[in-house]
């Protein structure tokens, strides 16, 4: 009798278990998609400051700028002038450095303006420039292959790059900083120990971030994404507490979303230079001359103010040797 009661109880238990399982299928997880290729990066080695070439900001001494349309015979500039257009390697998705205006579709931004200034100096016409759209990884190979005359693409001057290509004096002094929601109390990376922070995969910024420690002794949780705008999306979706990369790009975030703010002290300096093929030293000196002239005659200030708004800081002085 006991055994039969047990069997009945067991059968009932199984039946009831079956019922309750069908009624409550466990807790529901919210669906939160992340941008394509977003990954948590661990153990990225910090980039050691490379000073093998001395100060990477030092470039070749500029030559006096020739009049537009009168390039020295036999020079690289004369070859470009004969071709009828300057070919510039650039990106088309980095607000506010080089991007297509969503309304007009025209390529615009800080880098585009400087490229157009180069064309103006060669041809007297800023529109005589043919852009070649390339990824960051293609910058140096395209220069070496000769498929572009110069690269104006948020390229930080480093000794490693100067060993392979020619780089101009600094045309914009960017710095790595953080962007957070405007309502966030965070003002520096030190407050982000153990918190998710977004950066761009394969950049020096992400390595710098990984080397940071919060005041609680923990490193931030580094989330790497492939494109600049992916960090903006992750910030807007609340998937990360902050994003860090060049302040030029972060300024673009804040321009497009007023609920975001760029904050904190610079984590690293990112001086931008224009890249040219290593053998074209005449072009490099020419570029340095044009940059010096724009810094002196107010063109530089107009371009920077037009890009970021407000009153720009004084331009970085050109440093030269050789």
């Amino acid at each position: 009798m006991r055994a039969r009661v047990g069997v009945v109880a067991a059968v009932l238990a199984v039946l009831l278990a079956g019922c309750s399982q069908a009624a409550a299928p466990g807790p529901v997880e919210p669906v939160r998609p992340a941008p394509a290729g977003a990954t948590v990066v661990t153990g990225a080695p910090p980039a050691a400051a490379d000073t093998s070439c001395g100060d990477p900001r030092v470039s070749l001494t500029p030559t006096p700028e020739p009049a537009p349309g009168a390039m020295p015979a036999g020079s690289t500039m004369a070859r470009i002038a004969a071709r009828g257009a300057l070919i510039v390697g650039i990106d088309q998705s980095t607000v506010p450095l080089s991007y297509r205006d969503p309304r007009s579709g025209v390529l615009t931004g800080l880098d585009v303006r400087f490229a157009q200034e180069m064309a103006r100096s060669i041809f007297g016409d800023p529109s005589r420039v043919r852009f070649r759209i390339e990824s960051s990884a293609q910058r140096i190979p395209n220069l070496l292959a000769g498929s572009v005359d110069m690269v104006v693409q948020a390229m930080t001057v480093t000794c490693a790059r100067k060993a392979r290509i020619g780089m101009s004096s600094v045309y914009y002094d960017a710095a790595q900083r953080i962007a957070v929601p405007a309502v966030s109390p965070v003002t520096s990376v030190a407050q982000l120990g153990g918190r998710p922070v977004c950066s761009i995969t394969g950049t020096t910024s992400i390595a710098t971030l990984a080397a940071e420690r919060g005041t609680n002794g923990q490193p931030p949780v580094v989330v790497g994404v492939p494109e600049n705008s992916d960090c903006l999306v992750m910030l807007q979706q609340g998937q990360v507490d902050a994003a860090t990369t060049d302040d030029t790009i972060l300024a673009g975030y804040a321009l497009e979303d007023r609920r975001l703010a760029v904050r904190g002290e610079p984590l690293a300096s990112e001086p931008y230079g224009i890249g040219v093929a290593p053998q074209n030293t005449d072009l490099l000196r020419f570029v340095n001359g044009v940059l010096d002239r724009t810094k002196a005659d107010g063109t530089w200030a107009a371009i920077v103010a037009g890009t970021f708004g407000g009153t720009p800081a004084p331009p970085p002085p050109g440093q030269y040797a050789g």
Binding site: P35, D101, P102, R103, E227, V233
Partner: peptide
């Protein structure tokens, strides 16, 4: 609205 990050949202949608 002329905001370039629209493309990033579309890429996220597509990737999802």
């Amino acid at each position: 609205q002329g905001l370039t990050y629209g493309a990033a949202y579309l890429r996220e949608a597509s990737s999802f």
